[in-house]
């Protein structure tokens, strides 16, 4: 099953430990993760379920292609990294 890992920067707002979850696509895996940690959902996705503008997801090191539907496939032993983009961090 895929592993979901989160940026350290999100941890001070909402605790997001690394977890192994079910799911064949990024959407399924994140839904599984957020079902056990619902507050984290709004930090990563907007109310439409799209990846927030200044967030990024990598699947096995490759950048997510479908930021709206999160339909990118993830293999059984895949790793999903949820990180903040370098954009959006106005000083």
């Amino acid at each position: 099953m895929p592993t979901v890992r989160f940026t350290d920067n999100i941890q001070r707002h909402v605790e997001c430990p690394t977890r192994v979850v079910g799911g064949a696509r990024v959407r399924d895996a994140l839904d599984a993760y957020f079902s056990a940690n619902p507050r984290a959902r709004g930090y990563v996705l907007d109310e439409r379920g799209r990846l927030r503008e200044h967030m990024a997801i990598f699947v096995n090191g490759g950048q997510l292609r479908d930021r709206a539907g999160l339909t990118d496939p993830v293999e059984d032993e895949g790793i999903i990294d949820v990180i903040q983009a370098l954009s959006g961090g106005e000083s």
Partner: peptide, 8 residues
């Protein structure tokens, strides 16, 4: 207004 994580 978190630049990355949205408004809270």
């Amino acid at each position: 207004g978190h630049g990355h994580f949205g408004a809270k």
